[in-house]
Design a protein around this nucleic acid. Structure first.
Lengths: 205, 205
DNA sequence: TGCGGAAATCAACGCTTGTTGAACTAGGAT
DNA sequence: ATCCTAGTTCAACAAGCGTTGATTTCCGCA
């Protein structure tokens, strides 16, 4: 058998993929605990790597966060695609899309990382507000304005966002039991009309 | 003039009210930063008091959190009062009540402290899930079941909670601009029907 | 074959954190 | 007057944090 199994320093042979392992671990930790609670040491541990290597690749924890939370979908493509078939039925499409993405991303969901961090850190909240606004909500407001003649289309977009964020927090973070257990189409039927009304329905008293 | 102004040890004369000052500071800090980011030292500083005094009164940071987040309203009284006039119009009443409470509590809002902490800390999430469930959502589900004959009344309650949490996060934490700027009755008109539909409307596809 | 630079670890730093134990002071009861 | 108790501060601890600098190992290229 091999004698002692010393941890060697220095470069390992082959393409180690350590960078990707770090990014993966960071996504999962940030998504599960938020920026503050997730530690560089824990991320390095998950990736099977020394903490200093994390700094070697990314410089600071902040920069690692930015790199790890880079959204895997480009809003500039997704938003138009969802809007493609027209604003009718957009509520349903949007909810179904959201739930599908949540399922696909699993534990390493940047949306959860961003929400968790924004909620505990005013700077992150400002970043998320600006990102959400410019990348998604302003576009959505523009589409609403073109589809129906209403004032304050951005308020309608914000209302949609409030329900989407609510789903994320109540279902994925608080894990309210029946909400977490409900299957996708049940939730599409429940939330779809809500979003659709925020988009195009009457909001008068 | 007085010579040096040494900070004296020992008891101050009179009823100092330090305990209440600590609780107040803790509420504000926990509401603004969550459990993890709020520090005992900062809370003590806000209260004009030594950190050790905080431990003297409350033992641990955890216990201070529990004491500070004690809800100023008793759900066992509030829920029946809101349900009093019947389930018709409950959506509007609930939203108006929520927004009023948010305004009244201001910076020291335990709801914000609980959400901020739950989102960054699985244990706090479990606590909040159980509290929400037993104190509010199960009661609400019971009322729904008595008012209309539906299966899964608790899912309806969870749906309501998801929109309420969404309002809290999107308006008070992310501060989406038009949502934060909207006045109370505008939001009552927007959210009231949503909640009412989750309570008593059709959720079928 | 030699060599520069990238990959990786190790050990330590300075800082902040929650928490502790000792010391001191004042008020109230006896 | 005297003691007990509660309020309050001070100084320090141990642990955990992000980060740094030195050092070692290997790959790729001339």
């Amino acid at each position: 058998m091999a004698s002692t199994d010393p941890i060697r320093r220095g470069r390992r042979p082959g393409d180690s993929g350590a960078r990707d392992a770090i990014l993966d671990a960071a996504r999962t930790r940030f998504a599960g605990e938020g920026f503050r609670s997730a530690t560089v040491r824990a991320i390095a541990g998950d990736a099977g790597v020394d903490p200093a290597l994390v700094m070697h690749y990314f410089g600071t924890k902040q920069a690692l966060f930015v790199a790890a939370m880079e959204f895997p979908l480009d809003p500039a493509q997704v938003v138009p695609r969802l809007l493609g078939p027209g604003i009718d039925g957009l509520g349903e499409r949007l909810v179904r899309f959201l739930l599908t993405v949540i399922d696909d991303l699993g534990d390493a969901n940047p949306m959860l990382g961003l929400v968790r961090s924004a909620v505990g850190h005013p700077d992150a909240a400002r970043m998320m507000r600006e990102f959400l606004g410019e990348a998604i909500l302003d576009r959505l407001a523009q589409a609403i304005h073109e589809a129906i003649d209403t004032d304050r289309p951005r308020l309608r977009a914000d209302l949609c966002a409030s329900q989407v964020v609510g789903v994320l927090v109540a279902r994925q973070i608080l894990a309210l039991p029946e909400l977490a257990a409900a299957d996708r189409e049940t939730l599409v039927a429940a939330y779809g009309p809500t979003i659709q009304r925020y988009l195009t329905g009457s909001l008068d008293p």
